[in-house]
């Protein structure tokens, strides 16, 4: 049974080494999330950490027990296994423990989900987004302060963003290739796609929402810092998926006003 001991030793050793490396690199945050930039993202990160602690304990405990059993109960010629078929009290208490942990996670998760999915606050600053293969375009109201209607049916060579020709508010709207928002307000985003599925992903804000042709989808978040952030597309949208990059600049209201005043309205005035 020498071979058995050697196998048991290495098996147990591997399980423990793997667990140690995994636990260390995660606890040390060696490779971690991008710097946080939103209120909602902070709450998501908190729930993430709670989940990480609970699942981390289970992960480490199971691997230590597994390694111990592999070593302790390695086969020996002079020994016979115990005849134990089940243990109902153990099963019930184990299941109950898991259930309690899940109640905590489900409670935290659904509460946070409700907050994030509720309508944005009334003072939110709204940006509309057109997604298409393979770029983002950002839609702002013009001097009238009202966003014009858009619809994919109105799109033509002269009207690339599908503004409603009968909507008076559409006449001075602004379309930009970059997204700028004023710091200090919640930001609401309304998403539309011209062609296929896309997904509007803000890694620093921990936000993501698919963009679906034929539908309007929404998200909102509250930035906690100014800066320039990238917007990758997170839903496979074709061969250019990996270069579909947008840029979000969160800046002071003054800087934002200056930026928007430099944008040329492309509305229906032509």
């Amino acid at each position: 049974m020498k071979l058995s001991s050697r196998q048991a030793f290495w098996y147990a050793a591997f399980l423990l080494i793997f667990t140690a490396i995994a636990a260390y690199t995660v606890a040390n945050k060696t490779w971690w999330f991008p710097p946080l930039a939103s209120v909602q993202g902070g709450e998501i990160d908190n729930l993430f950490m709670i989940t990480l602690v609970i699942t981390g304990i289970v992960f480490i405990a199971v691997h230590i027990v597994l390694a111990y059993f592999v070593w302790r109960y390695r086969g020996q010629a002079d020994r016979k296994a115990a005849y134990v078929t089940h243990n109902t009290p153990f099963e019930i208490s184990a299941a109950a423990t898991v259930a309690v942990a899940l109640v905590i996670l489900v409670g935290g998760g659904t509460t946070l989900w409700t907050k994030i999915q509720s309508p944005p606050p009334a003072d939110a600053f709204t940006v509309e987004v057109w997604a298409e293969q393979f770029r983002w375009t950002f839609h702002y109201p013009g001097a009238d302060g009202r966003m014009g209607n858009v619809d994919v049916r109105f799109i033509s060579d002269d009207n690339p963003y599908g503004l409603d020709p009968n909507d008076p508010y559409a006449k001075d709207d602004i379309f930009a290739t970059e997204m700028h928002v004023p710091y200090g307000k919640p930001i609401a985003v309304i998403l539309r796609s011209k062609d296929v599925l896309h997904s509007f992903f803000l890694p620093h804000f921990r936000m993501k929402m698919d963009v679906v042709p034929g539908m309007k989808t929404r998200m909102w978040f509250t930035p906690t810092q100014a800066g320039v952030f990238e917007i990758p597309c997170a839903e496979l949208c074709g061969v250019g998926h990996y270069i579909m990059r947008g840029v979000l600049t969160v800046e002071s209201p003054e800087q934002f006003n200056e930026w928007i005043s430099q944008q040329t309205p492309v509305g229906m005035s032509q």
């Binding site: 059993f69 109960y73 390695r74 115990a82 099963e91 259930a99 899940l102």
Partner: peptide
């Protein structure tokens, strides 16, 4: 789903417990 999955995991560990494992 985590509950039946966890029960299965406990039972696999329980199977090894006091066994005489052949590798």
């Amino acid at each position: 789903i985590a509950i039946p999955s966890a029960i299965k995991t406990f039972n696999w560990l329980g199977t090894l417990w006091k066994g005489n494992i052949r590798f």
